[in-house]
Design a protein around this nucleic acid. Sequence first.
DNA 1: GCGACAG
DNA 2: ATCTTGTCGC
Length: 237
Amino acid sequence: MSPPEDWIRPANLDAARAAQHEIAVGVEFEDRLPEAPALVAGVDCAGAARGAPDRVRAMAVLLSAEARSRPLATGLAEGAPAFPYIPGFLGFREIPFVLEAVNKLPARPDLIVVDGHGISHPRGCGIATHLGVVLDLPTIGVAKSILVGRVEGMLGMEAGSTAPLVWKGRRIATALRSRRGVQPLFVSTGHRVSQETAVRLVMEWLAGYRLPEPTRLADRLAGEARKAAGNDAPALF
DNA sequence: GCGACAG
DNA sequence: ATCTTGTCGC
C-alpha cells in the first residue's frame, strides 16, 4: 500500500505539517527488527555546489554485517527538490530522492541509518521517522546537531559517553560521544527501533570515525558522486 | 514579538 | 548543505 501523496509531496507547508502529524501517529517505538541486522543501509543527501541550481543528490549504501566497510551496492538519485530547506521539514525536500535511491538497492535492508533526526523533532517526525513509516522499515536517526531540546546532565568526553536529549520534559534522543573529544551525535528512534537499541546499533556500527559506517559511507559517496557528475562549482568561465 | 533552527 | 589551507592534537 503506497502512502498518501501528501506524505511525500505535499502542496504547501500546512499540508506538510498535517502529514507529519499523521505520520507521527504510526511510529513504532519498540523494537521490531533482527537483534543483529545483517543488511544495513545508510542514506544521506548532498546538495549542489554554491552557485549551481538547487539540486539534491541522494545516496543509499547497502552494507552487510560481515563486510561493514565494503558496500554491497549503492543507489543514487538526483533532481530538483520541490521543497526548500526549512528546519523541521527536511523530509519533504529529500525523501522523494531517498526513496528512489533506496529502491535501487538490490535488497530490502533490515535497518536504515539516516543522517538527521528521528522522533527528536517538533512534531515527532524527523526525516528518519518519516522515511521509516513511509517504507515500513526500521530506521534510526543520527543527527550531527540538535533541532529541538537540550542535553541534560554532563556528557563525558570519553568515547561511548551518553546523556539524554530532553524536550518538553520528554527524552527524545541520546547524545552520544562516538569518539573521544568529538562533537556528539544525537541518536533517536526513527521507526521500529527503541531508543536503547538505536544507540546500541550505532555504537556497533562505528568503525573508528565519528559517524557510523552506513551514514559515513553514504555521505562520502554522495560527495564523490557530485564531483563525478561535474556538479561542482562552475569554472570561472 | 524574539530567538532558535536537522541538512 | 556549501565555501576551504593549514594547523593543532592524539
